[in-house]
């Protein structure tokens, strides 16, 4: 079937099977390979994108369901000139990533969190990240980066 959607502000069209997942359409058809696949049970969050402003794991949705939708992926997070967003910059400043595989999902999730809750507590950040698994960082520097991106002081234990 044919579909049309707006991805990172650009209108795109494609033809997919009914069973094609949104993540596969993004990765295979649009070659937007920043969105990753880390599991097959919608647990890991590596494929997290925004659909009409909502946080969505793009493996939980058929591409056809996103017909007509506005999609935002990691490729659209930085400015046109390459300047990183405040969240992206905080991840680099605070070493919030290692292998980088979960990172796009983490950044998209953090963006939603800070939109909903601009000054989250540490507890709220950790709760919000429940759907995103990172195997490298132990989450310490991810939580720290998100708190920093929200402009808050670090708790003493996060100093290191």
């Amino acid at each position: 079937m044919k579909l049309t959607m707006k991805v990172n502000g650009r209108e795109v069209t494609g033809e997919v099977e009914g069973r094609t997942l949104l993540v596969d359409f993004l990765r295979s058809d649009l070659r937007l390979t920043g969105t990753h696949v880390g599991c097959d049970t919608s647990q890991c969050g590596a494929c997290t994108v925004h659909v009409n402003g909502e946080l969505v794991k793009s493996c939980t949705m058929f591409a056809a369901e996103a017909d007509g939708a506005e999609i935002a992926t990691i490729e659209g997070a930085a400015a046109e000139d390459g300047t990183l967003s405040a969240i992206q910059q905080a991840f680099q400043d605070h070493h919030g990533l290692q292998c980088g595989y979960c990172t796009p999902g983490m950044v998209m999730t953090a963006a939603s969190l800070l939109k909903e809750n601009p000054k989250p507590t540490e507890h709220e950040v950790r709760q919000y990240l429940e759907g995103n698994i990172c195997r490298c960082t132990g989450y310490h520097n991810i939580v720290k980066a998100i708190m920093a991106a929200s402009g808050q002081e670090m708790p003493a234990m996060a100093a290191e």
């Binding site: 070659r31 390979t33 696949v37 390459g82 992206q88 680099q92 990533l97 292998c99």
Partner: peptide, 21 residues
């Protein structure tokens, strides 16, 4: 020193094996 590799990972431009077609 801040990690230089972070830029590609943070912008979705890393090249993992499944990105190779």
């Amino acid at each position: 020193s801040k990690r230089r590799e972070d830029i590609r990972f943070l912008t979705g431009t890393g090249k993992y094996t499944d990105d190779i077609n």
